[in-house]
């Protein structure tokens, strides 16, 4: 299965609340009015400029093992290594928000609209992650529709550059998936253009395949431990989110 798709910008856009300054210690009252106004404006710009799209393709565990090995720079043990062998199905993916949002962020900084540029940048990063999550959901729904996955499976996305999977792993991923079709390129430093893009593998299977302890050596250097939240939230609000994306 190879699937190129677009998402509605409304579906992928987040509120930007993970940004320092928007999620401050003012849980009840919310951020100061001028900061809230920035968030509102950034969300409007995002809706106007974001062009979320993606591509995904099934890959066998054997073929993925070769992609995953990449340039041989991964940590000896990683969650992806373990999860990919437990998964029922795997797919490589790349998603992007397009060049326009990144261009606008640069323009805002050049015109000294630093605060708005900063908020839009954070919002776009969050939204790119959300786009990747929606791609994973899309993949699982396709499998379920084809009768190749069970309703109680969960699909999560994992990316090079995180959790011991070296960022250079993107080279083989790009060689195989060829996301140039959706106008995403990789430079010599393994940096994607447009900047607000996410690549990786989607692992689909029983929820338990995604469970792991954050006790790998590199976990001690991780500030967010976002894996915990992802594992805990598996299976939440699936129906409503599914309705938000469209082909």
């Amino acid at each position: 299965m190879r699937d190129a798709f677009t998402f509605d910008a409304v579906a992928v856009r987040t509120e930007g609340y993970s940004l320092p300054g928007l999620k401050g210690p003012w849980a009840a009252s919310g951020p100061p009015e001028r900061v809230s106004a920035l968030a509102v404006e950034a969300r409007e710009i995002f809706l106007r400029l974001a062009r979320p799209r993606g591509i995904l393709e099934d890959i066998s565990p054997e073929a993925f093992a070769a992609v995953y090995r990449g340039e041989g720079l991964n940590e000896p043990r990683t969650p992806v290594d373990e999860i990919s062998t437990r998964a029922g199905r795997l797919a490589l993916f790349v998603v992007t928000l397009g060049e326009e949002v990144s261009g606008e962020i640069a323009r805002l900084f050049e015109s000294r609209d630093f605060a708005l540029g900063y908020v839009l940048d954070g919002l776009a990063s969050e939204s790119a992650d959300r786009t990747a999550g929606l791609a994973a959901r899309r993949y699982l729904d396709s499998l379920i529709a084809l009768g190749e996955a069970r309703e109680d499976w969960a699909a999560l996305n994992y990316s090079p550059g995180y959790c011991g999977w070296h960022i250079s792993g993107q080279r083989r991923l790009f060689d195989r998936l060829k996301p140039e079709e959706i106008r995403v390129r990789l430079n010599e430093s393994f940096l994607m253009r447009p900047l607000k893009s996410v690549s990786g593998v989607i692992a689909a299977g029983g929820k338990e395949i995604h469970d792991f302890s954050d006790t790998f050596e590199f976990c001690s250097e991780c500030e967010g431990h976002g894996c915990r939240q992802r594992i805990v939230s598996l299976g939440a609000a699936r129906g409503s989110e599914r309705e938000q994306w469209r082909s």
Binding site: L19, P20, P31, R34, L38, A115, Y118
Partner: peptide, 10 residues
């Protein structure tokens, strides 16, 4: 937080 610092910088 940073957004307010950046407003001040402008």
């Amino acid at each position: 937080f940073l957004p307010e610092v950046l407003l001040a910088a402008r």
